[in-house]
Design a protein around this nucleic acid. Sequence first.
DNA 1: CAGGATCCTCTATGATACTG
DNA 2: CAGTATCATAGAGGATCCTG
Lengths: 130, 130
Amino acid sequence: MDVTTADVPPGRFDAFAASCPSRQLLDTIGNKWSSLVIVALGLGGRMRYSELSARIAGVSQKMLTQTLRGLERDGLLTRTVTPSVPVRVDYELTPLGLSLLEPMRHLKEWAEAHMAEVDLARAEYDRNDG
Amino acid sequence: MDVTTADVPPGRFDAFAASCPSRQLLDTIGNKWSSLVIVALGLGGRMRYSELSARIAGVSQKMLTQTLRGLERDGLLTRTVTPSVPVRVDYELTPLGLSLLEPMRHLKEWAEAHMAEVDLARAEYDRNDG
DNA sequence: CAGGATCCTCTATGATACTG
DNA sequence: CAGTATCATAGAGGATCCTG
C-alpha cells in the first residue's frame, strides 16, 4: 500500500494511482461483482455462465460479462468454451485466483468480527447530528 | 461474503447487496481514498488535515473531507478539533481502525506476491486479442 | 487552516434489443 | 446459451469560490 508522492510525473497524478500495486488490486477485487464472482467460484468450483448469473442475484448480463472478462484478463479465472449447440461456457478459478481466497477470508473474518461495532458507531454518529 | 439469493425481497435486489456485511465492508475500505487514508494514518499516527492532504497526492479537498467523515462515522478514526486561531484538526485511528490494518496487510502481501503474475497475465491476454 | 457550497463532467452501471 | 451492441441515467468525483 503505497502512500507516497514519489513517482508522480509533474502535473499528473493518474500515474501515481495506476502504478500503485494496491490500487491495481483494488481495481481487481475492490468492487461488488468481482469479489462476488471470485467467492462464488471459490465455493462452487467450475461454473457455467448461467449458473453464475443465477447465483449472483441482481447482476446484469453486461456487468457479469464485463467482470468475467476482467478477471480472465487478470489471470484469476479461466474461460472454457465447449462448441456444442447451444454453446456451453465454463468458468473456473486458476491457482492464482484460488490464492486470493485466503486474504479475502481475513477480510471476511474482520467484517464478521467488527461490522457490528461499525454499525453501532454509525448509529451513534447519526444520532448526534445526522 | 454472502453469495446467496436468500433475503431478497421480491422484485428488488438492493436489500440483498445492502444487507451483506462484505458489501458494507467494501463500501468502507474498497475505494482508493478510504484505504489510503487508513494506511496513511496507520503509518503516520495522529495527523492533521493538511498533512493527510499532502501525503495522499492527488486527493481533492472534497474527497478527503468526505472520506474522513465517512471513516469517522464508521468509528474507524477520531476527529479532534483544537479551537486555536487558525483552527487545528487532527485525525487518528481508533482501536477499531487499527484492527483493520491487519487484514489489509494480508491483502498487501498478496498484492506484492502476485501482482507481477497479474501483470503478466494481462500482457498475455492483451497480446492475443486486445 | 479546515472545510462548506456549487457547478459540471465523466464514468459506472442498468435496461433493452439483437445474434452465432 | 452466452453473449454483443446501443442507449440512457445516476452518482462519483474534480474545479472553483467562499467562510469561521
